[in-house]
Nucleic acid binder design. Structure first.
Length: 485
DNA sequence: TTTTGAGTTGTTCGA
DNA sequence: GTCGAACAACTCAAA
């Protein structure tokens, strides 16, 4: 009589409902993690995600060991691995926390049926979202496709129960079944491009808790003022931890709110309010993906099916490598490559550049982010790229085209961000830094720059590109533009 | 059913 | 240098 506890995107012991239920059952627990390389079809985890997963599993192994338990690793389809484990161990119950990607929902349904048919108890829980995506609905009973009413509705219905504590002891079976070694899964890269990752991140529950505590102590009250400046430490950087469930949105919510509480009844400080709305954007993305399963692959607004996208391998490559000649864009793309993460403001700038300045399909950018971001998340990534492209929910108006120079001057005012990630132009004055092609030959020489050699000329003229995008977008207007399933 | 108000993140131009 | 308007029209959600 044992309980199989299947970990997924909930790699934590605190506030973990499936774990709490398994502990409450009072029987030995076998924690397992299943790696299924074919899990997600076309959206199998990218290289940066796998790097994170490796370290997070190592961390979870240690946490479980501290509670007297062990993490069992198995490779293969959950649909074969779990029934096999039930036989091996004689388990009479299987618990897990749900995942909400379309493929995972389908698999969960099949899995539950198969386990229940075998006469074994099966239960799933919500550890990863503030709400169940299917429960939030408009008065007409439809999914929301505009953020603000979604947010109001979510807020009004949200009730946070107390967190489940970390179990001091997790009852072990007499014998644990065989486990793979995480190293045998070869999740880490062969060539050492992950050096910058190690300096930037601490995957695992302890790292997530520390990140949250630091953010809440130092930055949440100033969040709304600082969040747009990539050179400041104004954001939480919790995204990869949230993605892997090393911390849950409920824990984040409680911590942010408690920092804002001065006296009961006081209004929420603006920084806290704005931060919570960002957590709600994550929820909104899952809500959309749950109802519009095509979102990662096809535009929600069908009028974009006929958009005249360009194709240009060299320009795509320049964008990916941070060699576009626009410093703020290149800084962002290099930060991404080096650390597996990019500041949100800069994500919008580089996305706008790929889509509107280069007229390359948003899916190309989505795919690159998917492979290189440690926080790559199917729902958030797809929703955000569609938002910038203008083909998604609550999308940007067609004329909203970021000017990379203006954005650089407004949000990297002192140039700290560009100088850090594009050091070859660091000696330029603030005045020239965001547009090196306007520097005089003397200024360039004094800064040690040979444009076209040590740093590229702009690969596209923004003014021309803006007009080109505006006319393409104008022509896309009309036709079926509603969002429907 | 119809009406009404509102809709994350911008840029440019001209007064 | 600053500020407001224009850039479109449409869809959504609720009354």
């Amino acid at each position: 009589m044992t309980t199989l506890l299947v970990f997924g995107r909930d790699l934590r012991l605190a506030d973990n409902p499936a774990l709490a239920a398994a502990v409450a059952r009072g029987k030995p627990i076998i924690p397992i993690y299943i790696l299924d390389p074919e899990d997600a079809g076309a959206w199998a985890p990218g290289a940066a995600s796998l790097w994170w997963l490796h370290h997070s599993l190592e961390s979870l192994t240690l946490c479980l060991a501290r509670a007297g338990s062990r993490l069992i690793l198995r490779k293969g389809s959950a649909l074969t691995v779990i029934p096999r484990l039930i036989k091996e161990t004689g388990a009479d119950a299987v618990f897990w926390n749900r995942r909400y990607e379309p493929w995972a929902v389908k698999r969960g349904v099949k899995l539950k049926a198969a386990i229940a048919n075998a006469g074994v108890e099966v239960q799933s829980f919500n550890a990863g979202l503030l709400h169940e995506p299917q429960l939030v609905k408009t008065q007409a009973g439809k999914p929301y496709t505009v953020f603000t009413p979604f947010w109001k509705s979510l807020r009004a219905s949200l009730s946070l129960e107390a967190a489940y504590p970390v179990p001091k002891k997790i009852m072990a079976p007499n014998n644990f079944p065989h486990s793979d070694k995480v190293s045998s899964w070869k999740l880490l890269p062969n060539i050492p491009w992950d050096v910058g990752f190690k300096d930037t991140w601490t995957p695992g529950e302890a790292g997530a808790q520390k990140r949250l505590a630091d953010f809440v102590d130092a930055d949440v009250l100033g969040y709304s003022d600082n969040r747009n400046f990539p050179g400041r430490s104004g954001t939480s950087r919790l995204s990869p931890h949230l993605h892997f469930g090393e911390i849950g949105p409920r824990q984040v919510w409680r911590a942010a709110v408690s920092q804002g509480v001065v006296a009961t009844g006081d209004p929420m400080p603006r920084g806290v309010e704005v931060y919570l709305s960002e957590i709600a954007w994550r929820e909104f993305a899952y809500h959309l993906l749950f109802h519009f399963n095509d979102m990662p692959d096809a535009p929600l607004r069908k009028s974009f099916d006929s958009f005249p996208w360009r194709s240009d391998a060299a320009q795509l490559r320049a964008w990916q490598k941070g060699m576009t000649g626009y410093p703020i864009v290149d800084a962002g793309m290099r930060e991404l490559w080096h650390t597996g993460w990019m500041h949100n403001r800069v994500r919008m700038i580089v996305a706008s550049f790929l889509i509107k300045d280069l007229l390359l399909p948003w899916q190309y950018g989505e795919a690159w982010f998917w492979d290189t971001l440690v926080d790559a998340d199917l729902a958030s990534n797809a929703a955000s790229w569609q938002w910038v492209a203008g083909c998604g929910a609550d999308a940007a108006p067609y004329f909203r085209i970021f000017n990379p120079v203006t954005q650089g001057k407004n949000y990297d005012t002192d140039g700290a961000y560009v100088r850090r990630w594009v050091p070859e132009i660091a000696k330029l004055s603030d005045e020239r830094l965001q547009e090196p092609w306007t520097a005089t030959p003397l200024e360039l020489a004094e800064a040690g720059i040979q444009l076209g050699k040590t740093y590229p000329f702009p690969i596209v003229d923004h003014a021309m590109a803006r007009d080109r995008a505006l006319s393409a977008l104008r022509e896309t207007k009309g036709g079926q533009n509603q969002i429907s399933a």
